[in-house]
Design a protein around this nucleic acid. Sequence first.
DNA 1: CGCCTCATTGACTAATCTCAAATGGAGTGG
DNA 2: CCACTCCATTTGAGATTAGTCAATGAGGCG
Lengths: 229, 229
Amino acid sequence: LLDSPFARKLKAFVALSDDDLNVVSTLDKRKRHFAPGRDMFHAGQTDASAYIMATGWACGYILLPDGTRQITAIKIPGDFLGLRSITSVDASEVRVNDLFGAFAGTPRLAIAFLWAASRDEAILVEHLVGLGRRSAAQRVGHFLLELAARLKLVGLGDKTGYDCPMSQYLLADTLGLSAVHVNRVLRELREAGLATFQQGRVTLHDLPGLIAFCDFNPGYLDHDGPLLK
Amino acid sequence: LLDSPFARKLKAFVALSDDDLNVVSTLDKRKRHFAPGRDMFHAGQTDASAYIMATGWACGYILLPDGTRQITAIKIPGDFLGLRSITSVDASEVRVNDLFGAFAGTPRLAIAFLWAASRDEAILVEHLVGLGRRSAAQRVGHFLLELAARLKLVGLGDKTGYDCPMSQYLLADTLGLSAVHVNRVLRELREAGLATFQQGRVTLHDLPGLIAFCDFNPGYLDHDGPLLK
DNA sequence: CGCCTCATTGACTAATCTCAAATGGAGTGG
DNA sequence: CCACTCCATTTGAGATTAGTCAATGAGGCG
């Protein structure tokens, strides 16, 4: 339990005592399972619960009246969320009251949560920048690199790459592109020897090259924090 | 003081007692002034202060190595921020410790701050959706409508429109477009009789028409809250 | 006046989307 | 095992959107 993805992530950036970690593990009590494609939350739902992902991937999204979809966040194990599952997801339900209770006794834990929230916002901002000002190829590459870094932090993936359950359609709706164009860009990256996205597996063939190509700066993923904002 | 834009905004969504409002006004003590174009914060700066805007406009932005800029947020009076000023800005500096002190005695105030933070995130998400899935014209119109709603909440603007100090370049960097294209889109909106953006003034000639055209749903600006996330 | 910045417009280019079709694997029922 | 369907991927061709480059005005300001 002390080695859950969530605890792993917090430990990487906020010094937590064994007592703090024990409190974290008590939050992990109420386990729930979600089938692939199932909605964990609905828009506007004011629920007194949230979830910490243990296994699986999930995304948050908005549907527009013309039928298009924009994915607003991709969540992996260790992330805090209220979203929709992509793959089969195991998550711990956390009641708001439990959370406040946990904070009362362990202030460092509150700081860790604030740090995590601040990081989530930084990720959101980085996606905004990508949608606004990066080319399709840079956007795709940047996203693949971000996922690699986030997964590594919770102990997933390896030197060569990582497993990624997203279809090219999901990638398209995440990056504001058409699925057709995502496919073409992936081919470009593959032919340039930078990265491969195939059969549920992302392989980073030329990490330094890809980082240079996308102007990827991981600072936003391991920032100092938490900032107040 | 009880009628500052910030208090006004909070009051609109969270029931605050006179005591709560008095605590709010104590936060407004440390007034500061920022000249147009001046940076109030620098990237990555881990400062123990934040600001509440009283007058003026500000924006947050990221500069990319190729010289382009993406504006990540536009802030108006009543907003909470750490950013850059567009016009001359008056703001109250708030120390983190003061904030925690204020929360300790007035829990409803903490809820109000959480609500405001949650609303800021909803605005960010809506911009993300716009960049990813809306046409240039819808994006521009949607943004003009959002500003109208946000300004109205803090008592700025009127039935016909509002004053807006943004240049078309700033609008372009906010919406992920080129300044030239922003100009063209504004002309379209003008010729369609929907809205005018000229001489620092936004005039909404056909509000229902513009709302329909942009699929503007203000729900994200006055959501129930605060949600946990 | 001379020098800015911002707004405006035209002509052309480039990026991305849409439509359409072909491919290929995974499951399903016979 | 085979035929069939479903879904994701792949590719091509042409249309559309938005960007780039370039030039001209219009207004503010020393």
